[in-house]
């Protein structure tokens, strides 16, 4: 094998090595649909309001969605006149959204006007849309997760209608 062939072989080997190196995705920019499930939205998702946002018990609860990432999540803002624990859950699956959740809680009490948001739930196969409920609460003590408990469909802390 001459020197030129060896060089070509080396380049091919390196190319194949590059293809095989595992890449851990941490950016929502690289996800779509199902593959966004469990990731946090970033600016590339260009989130917008999904279902009508609402306020209950000093929590401003926004079901959020992205047509770019084909995913949904929930953002919760503390609008109580003081710092509060703040938690949100995006509920899905089962017969009444009770089976799965993506939940986030602040690490401590956060100030009035501050927000948290949950990981995303991707649309099924990137084609259909998985039905979700956006749930949120603020409290002076830590909040049991998931928000919405065992009956999220009837919880006032969760979006959606009967």
């Amino acid at each position: 094998m001459d020197r030129k062939s060896k060089l070509q072989l080396l380049l091919v080997a390196l190319f194949l090595l590059g293809l095989m190196i595992p890449i851990e995705n941490v950016f929502a920019a690289m996800c779509s649909g199902d593959n966004c499930t469990g990731l946090y939205a970033d600016s590339s998702c260009q989130g917008t309001s999904g279902a009508t946002p609402f306020t209950y018990g000093s929590a401003y609860i926004e079901p959020r969605s992205s047509s770019v990432c084909k995913a949904q999540w929930t953002r919760v803002t503390n609008v109580a006149p003081g710092s509060r624990w703040t938690a949100g859950s995006t509920r899905y699956g089962g017969t009444l959204y009770e089976m799965y959740h993506q939940s986030t809680q602040s690490a401590s009490q956060i100030g009035y006007g501050s927000s948290i948001y949950t990981r995303m739930v991707g649309s099924d196969g990137g084609l259909g849309v998985i039905d979700t409920l956006g749930c949120g609460r603020v409290s002076t003590s830590q909040i049991s997760l998931p928000v919405g408990g065992s009956q999220p469909h009837s919880s006032p802390y969760c979006s959606g209608v009967w």
């Binding site: 390196l14 590059g18 293809l19 690289m30 959740h101």
Partner: peptide, 27 residues
């Protein structure tokens, strides 16, 4: 060439990345 391979790998995986840290849980 190595970078090219990595780039193509990333493009191929776009929209099909293994999710780390998902919280799907039965309750």
């Amino acid at each position: 060439v190595l970078g090219l391979g990595l780039g193509i790998r990333a493009l191929l995986l776009r929209g099909n990345i293994t999710v780390k840290g998902g919280m799907d849980e039965r309750l």
